[in-house]
Design a protein around this nucleic acid. Structure first.
Lengths: 184, 184, 184, 184
DNA sequence: CATGAATGAGCTTTCATTCAT
DNA sequence: TATGAATGAAAGCTCATTCAT
């Protein structure tokens, strides 16, 4: 609190005029960004569940959605989003990153289920989907964390998404092939 | 220290019978694992620099090496390696993960340089190589962090490496193509 | 306690077989020496009060008595007596040195009273007697503290007593002279 | 620190606003007084070594110098000087009293050497000079410790110095006499 | 009897928080 | 409103004391 006050160029006591305590200061800072993130997440979930019902499976499209949202948020609130994603253990924001991973997981999951023609993922498939979604999200976080310039941002996110998309494609094809083999 | 003692089910004073202070407890725990990791890193660096001189560029092979080493260490010392990789800010272990990323970076760098026929990466290529190496290492960390069972470990790491390898291949091909275009 | 046990060459726990706690160990060590000292003090007080009544004023004789007693005790129990005289603040032995000083004071006091022909010391005389007695005792303590060899012990104590005795004599004579002046 | 804070009537945390830690509190208190003392000691040493070269041996004069210095310091900083002289074991001030004793010793030593016509003190003479200097210094400390009023201060110190001076004189004469006996 | 691992009260120090000015 | 001196809970650490072996 001393350091925060010093950086703000005000007296320590004065911080408490605007924020009841350290916790409130933290929330007041992160809350609006987090709410914006949550709203976008809800929208994305809806879009994705809609496209399921309409049998569209263009993965890249969903990810582009997520991408645009995140890039926007990160560009505007880099520090806050970094806190939400990487420094929120023990706060109510700690589920932010896991939520994004869950969303990503559900997309990958439905693709695998379609490819395999089954209803439930087996143990390995679950681990695989979990790994892909979390490493992808982690990768996106890294890009956003390390790159200041906007143009590079977009290019790198595109590259990463393309890599994961291609990787997922090949995994799906593999699965479809092995499914045909088993059927014959 | 109180919490550690409580978790260990012993009195706080007793912790100090076995570890001189909080710092020593930390190092005593992490040091041997870290040393093992450093030794493996040194070996990997040698192998990689050797293969450079002999013009072998089978990326997968290097990554398999790194993979095997890390998997071994993480399997045996999951908690300690997690600390070294994710909780070592402000300690002498903090460069462990960056070092691995640097190693990965140098592999990717040399591949790009060969494909482009140049000596130095431009700004975007640097950002790309940085992104690929750090997201790959982060992905490996995630797998190792989240998966207990040994067999799944290996399969997932293989998958991730295959994805990045394929992604890198396509990027390289793209670059070679654009190079030919420029030359003609 | 650890250090004491280590010096004694026994385990820490074993110390508590013989001494209930640190306080008791301290008292058990110092008590007998202190009692011996107290007994001697009582005796000296009696002798001195006896000689008062019999109008003997050979100061040196009383001091020789105190001297012999202290030398004996210090020679036999150097460490313990040093504790009693110099390291007993906050314990029941803390009055040991003040008591000796008081005794010495009472001797000097009675000599001054006789020389001045009065019943009570004035403020300056009190301070003087206090200074002489305490510095003498302190001097004796120093000799006993710093000198190991017995023979030197005695010679130095003799020297110091002679100096203070002569000093006292000259002060007394001064006082008697100024008394005569005032009377005439 | 709790006790110091309690005695000061403030909270423990507040002590650390004014003193970085316990050590600094101690030094901040004692340092200026100690420096003043050291400066005076240096001056005294110079004066004494000068008078040696000029064959003046008026002991009383040197002691008066020391006396005036100490009285001044003790009067102004009674508590601090008491700490420097009696409570400084294990700190950098612990040599303060020994230094004063050494100075006093060197004065007495040179007087004895002159009286004896020798170059080096024998064992007994060393012990005697040591005893006289340390008991004198201790006596001065006692006066300064116990007496608040300034006038009494000076008178008592004068008395003590006169006693030791006279005692030293008689010892010196004794030595000169025994020297003549040996020569004849 | 002897041992030393285990205990926990109490120490110095830090830092979020309060409140008189 | 703004200030920063004052507060005290809690952290790391020490050491006299206990107790199972």
């Amino acid at each position: 609190m001393r350091i925060i006050a010093a950086n703000a160029g005000i007296a320590i006591g004065n911080v408490y005029r605007y924020y009841k305590n350290k916790d409130e200061l933290f929330h007041e800072l992160v809350q609006p960004v987090y709410e914006s993130y949550e709203a976008n997440m809800a929208e994305m979930r809806q879009k994705i569940s809609f496209s399921y019902r309409n049998d569209t499976t263009d993965v890249l499209k969903y990810y582009s959605n997520i991408e645009a949202t995140l890039i926007d948020l990160f560009k505007t609130f880099t520090a806050e989003m970094t806190i939400v994603f990487n420094r929120s253990e023990g706060t109510k924001y700690e589920h932010a990153k896991p939520d994004l991973i869950k969303l990503s997981f559900s997309v990958i999951e439905s693709m695998i289920l379609k490819a395999r023609g089954t209803d439930v993922l087996n143990e390995y498939e679950t681990a695989l989907a979990q790994m892909l979604s979390s490493s992808l999200v982690e990768g996106l976080c890294l890009i956003l964390r390390d790159n200041v310039e906007g143009d590079t941002y977009n290019k790198l996110v595109d590259q990463l998404l393309r890599i994961y998309s291609a990787g997922l494609d090949s995994i799906i094809k593999q699965m479809e092939a092995s499914r045909r083999d088993q059927t014959e």
